[in-house]
Design a binder for these strands. Structure first.
Lengths: 207, 207
DNA sequence: CTAATCTTGTGAAATGATTCACAAGCCCCG
DNA sequence: CGGGGCTTGTGAATCATTTCACAAGATTAG
């Protein structure tokens, strides 16, 4: 398939949120214009985004809410459950381990790791923090689709190397550092300080 | 000034990280090519990014590390201190309140708020959680440049309305919901589940 | 001082993303 | 069953971003 822009995927994911909201309210159909209003974009953009994957609407009516929701879930790969392992059980790791938004989307945190003896053995919402030294061996059995990195920046790269070597292909990194990975492994980074800096720029420049 | 793309600002912020690293190592100059390698982009991109703001390099030599770092800090608005207020002292809010990366970049968390009586009065790393009902009055005195939203999604919009009414112009939202704000107020959202979904798509589509 | 070597800064070209605009299809009403 | 009113799907046009390519300035070696 043709390459799809990240901006498109990001919007699809947002459309899905709104569709699920509408679904609960019992809406049967929705127009590209309604979706656009909810998502802060334009109806042409909505239709273009969807058109990359086929045509699911009915002219004159709009889209079937449940059918479109199902189709977007399928496109995004959200019909399956995702097993997620968290490395780093500090405050950020702990918050992630217990984050409600993940469970709701069927991202299941199956284990958490830390290197600090004081944290090993403690429980995060039913998940017992394990010793990071057992990570490599455990990954075989746990077989997670995605690993979340929530360790200090200087510890991140070695963890990523180990995780990639164990065959994990998806990494979501919360450490504020650039990461190198082998081909075939996908990393995304969430850098909270960087987001604040972009905001600072917007506030500073808007004069 | 001409409008600058967000992608450019994001890269500037990353360049700054590398520059600070190089600065500590005692490097005096750096070429666009070195910066590109560190940041995973191209030298032409680096030079183009910088060129929007002036020309700081020396042909044949490269850029002075400390001078460029200073200039980027100035561009991004990081020379000043930013006062930050956090609303929502659950696990995410608590993690943010104590996040080391913010302090390092001179984003100072000056207060945290919550609506839950069980949390009010507890201390997060020296910051005592206050009652959300006093938020509006307190904002006058605190006068934060930025407010972080870390409340449940359904509570976010009312908080944003209150915060915007109090004159705050920058909001960083961690609640997984779209927010409306008046003109002149800048919102950015960090949606952790959405990042996981984009990752899920990348893993699903790459076949 | 000259020549060879670097590396910047920047128009121009190429590529990518969004918006426009409209034909085509579907629904509903009479 | 025909006409009016919606709304999709999609090429074409526009707008934005990245990459290319090279002249010009600076440094270094001889």
């Amino acid at each position: 398939m043709k390459h799809i822009a990240e901006s498109t995927v990001r919007r699809l994911s947002r459309y899905l949120r709104f569709l699920e909201g509408e679904e609960e309210l019992g809406a049967e159909t929705i127009s590209s214009d309604d979706l656009a209003t909810l998502g802060g974009t334009t109806s042409a953009q909505v239709r273009k985004d969807l058109s990359f994957f086929g045509s699911f609407g009915t002219r004159g009516r709009g889209y079937s809410v449940p059918a479109l929701a199902r189709r977007i879930r399928e496109i995004l790969g959200l019909e399956r459950e995702w097993r997620v392992v968290i490395v780093g059980a500090g405050r950020v790791g702990a918050a992630l381990a217990q984050y409600r938004g993940f469970r709701e989307r069927r991202f299941n945190v199956v284990a958490a790791y830390d290197a600090d003896p004081a944290r090993i053995g403690t429980s995060l919402n039913g998940i017992v923090v394990r010793d990071q030294r057992t990570l490599d061996a455990d990954l075989q059995a746990l077989n997670p689709g995605i690993v979340l990195i929530a360790v200090p920046p200087e510890a991140a790269q070695p963890i990523v190397d180990r995780v990639a070597r164990a065959g994990v292909r998806g990494i979501l990194n919360f450490a504020p550092t650039a990461l190198r990975v082998p081909d075939g492994v996908v990393v995304r980074s969430v850098d909270m300080a960087l987001e604040l800096e972009i905001l600072a720029y917007a506030l500073t420049a808007a004069k």
